[in-house]
């Protein structure tokens, strides 16, 4: 079970959290102006890296807050967690060797 560092509460076990998939996917400001292909990309296409992945987590059974995390999908190591709207301190390389 992962140990996840909520930016608001500290380290808590994974069962308290809900993972919301890839982070930093901005909803287009005016979806009506976006063509079908770009909208489909926005809805359905996600990175699936082996290595560092920025993802959304919510401390569902805790403070209830959404935040972001950088997790290595290979080792499951969390490099950092940070609040929604912030950028990670760690450079986000998509894949690892």
């Amino acid at each position: 079970m992962l140990l996840i560092d909520c930016p608001f509460c500290g380290k808590r076990p994974e069962v308290e959290f809900h993972c919301g998939g890839e982070a930093h996917i901005a909803r287009p400001a005016d979806p009506a102006q976006v063509d079908d292909a770009i909208w489909a990309e926005h809805l359905f296409v996600r990175k699936n890296p082996r290595g560092l992945h920025a993802e959304r987590w919510r401390h569902l059974h805790g403070c209830g807050q959404w935040f972001n995390a950088l997790r290595d999908t290979y080792t499951d190591r969390f490099v950092e967690t940070y609040k929604a709207g912030e950028q990670p301190k760690h450079p986000l390389t998509e894949t690892r060797a």
Partner: peptide
């Protein structure tokens, strides 16, 4: 309404 959650998708082919 200019937008609501799901509106743009209702126009998907």
């Amino acid at each position: 309404k200019p937008d609501f959650v799901g509106k743009r998708s209702l126009a998907r082919p």
